[in-house]
Amino acid sequence: MHVLVTGAGGHLGRILFDHLEARPEFKVSGLDIRPVDHPQIHQADFGADPVWADHFAGVDVIVHLAGDREPAASWESSIRNNMDATLALYHHAAEHGVSRVVLASSNWVHGDKRFTDDILNRQTPPGPVNAYGMSKLFCERTGEYFARYRGLSVICLRIGWTQWTHDNQPGPHMAMGLWGQQMWLSTRDFLNGMMAAITVPDIDFAAVNLMSDNRGMRWDITETKELIGYEPKDGGSPVNTLSIRIKSWWCKMVTFSAPRLFARVFPDW
């Protein structure tokens, strides 16, 4: 099986690329916007002319990790590097006979649910709160279109939180309080989820969560287990310190109470 990894020079992209390269049943190649010191990782800008599509010839599965990964990404960058780039990638993947695209989506698709009690699964209405989250929702919806009308299998993984620091171990050092800790994704489970999505047969379209099996989390990974055969090996136990509780209370007040108070004081604003 020939797997092409976009964003192969990034943190998660290189982890996956090296994991695939070490397994004899896979042929692996990669694309990245920056030069990478590896003969099978080629430079490509998905927001520019699609000369990069030539690398899709003979590819079975594309794992699409490239794009602007920052939650604070601007609309300009989110449109160019996430929306337009992914739409072009779907189109050229279908044209070249690629069987499947595994899309790195994001927990930010449900960003508005941070201070609710909703269980987050495929039936939960999306609610992105920033340009980045909106761009990932767009990539999911266009992926479903290509699955329905162009015969391209698309699996969207709403990835939790993998860290570049702390050896990617969970704990109160993580931002966003319990919400952040509960979406922790170990490196081993990231690879488990990706390998399941790459190899599972007979999936037209799916958009599922990819987190480790963390205590108390609201991200439902039952569907991920059932649909693609994901088997998490790790799980964290979030720590709710006094500092975390204070920060969460303040953030919740700013998010919900302050706008309502402003509307009452200035009803005609």
Score class of each variant (00 low, 15 high):
Asp68Trp: 10
Met183Ala: 10
Ala196Val: 04
Ser77Glu: 13
Gly67His: 00
Val102Met: 00
Gly67Phe: 09
Arg141Trp: 12
Ala73Ile: 08
His91Pro: 00
His173Glu: 14
Lys113Trp: 11
Met134Lys: 09
Cys156Pro: 02
His96Cys: 07
Leu178Arg: 15
Asn107Lys: 15
Gly151Glu: 01
Met134Thr: 11
Val208Asp: 00
Gly133Cys: 09
Thr116Met: 14
Arg80Gln: 09
Leu191Glu: 03
Ile155Pro: 06
Asn81Gly: 10
Phe190Ala: 07
Arg114Tyr: 10
Pro126Arg: 04
Trp75Phe: 12
Thr86Gln: 12
Glu76Gln: 13
His96Ala: 12
Met183Arg: 08
Asp117Met: 10
Val63Ala: 05
Gly171Lys: 12
Pro125Cys: 03
Val129Pro: 05
Val208Glu: 01
Val154Tyr: 04
Lys136Leu: 12
Asp118Cys: 13
Ala104Arg: 00
Leu137Tyr: 07
Asn121Arg: 03
Gly193Met: 00
Tyr132Trp: 13
Met183Trp: 15
Gly171Thr: 13
Gln163Thr: 12
Thr86Val: 09
Ile159Tyr: 01
Phe138His: 15
Val208Gln: 04
His92Ala: 04
Leu103Ala: 05
Trp179Gly: 04
Lys136Gly: 00
Cys139Ser: 15
Ile79Trp: 13
Leu103Asp: 03
Gln169Lys: 15
Ile159Ser: 01
Asp204Ala: 13
Trp164Phe: 15
Glu144Ile: 04
His166Pro: 10
Asp68Ala: 08
Ser186Arg: 02
Tyr149Ala: 07
Met134Tyr: 05
Pro126Lys: 02
Arg188Glu: 15
Asp189His: 09
Tyr90Ile: 04
Tyr90Gly: 01
Gly111Lys: 02
Gln181Pro: 01
Asn107Thr: 13
Ala207Tyr: 01
Tyr149Thr: 15
Glu144Asp: 14
Leu210Arg: 03
His92Asp: 10
Gly67Arg: 03
Arg80Trp: 10
Asp112Val: 11
Leu65His: 03
His91Gly: 00
Leu157Asp: 02
Ala197Tyr: 01
Tyr149Lys: 13
Met194Gln: 13
Arg150Met: 11
Asn209Arg: 01
Gln181Met: 04
Ala175Val: 14
Ser153Asp: 10
Asn192Arg: 07
Leu185Ile: 12
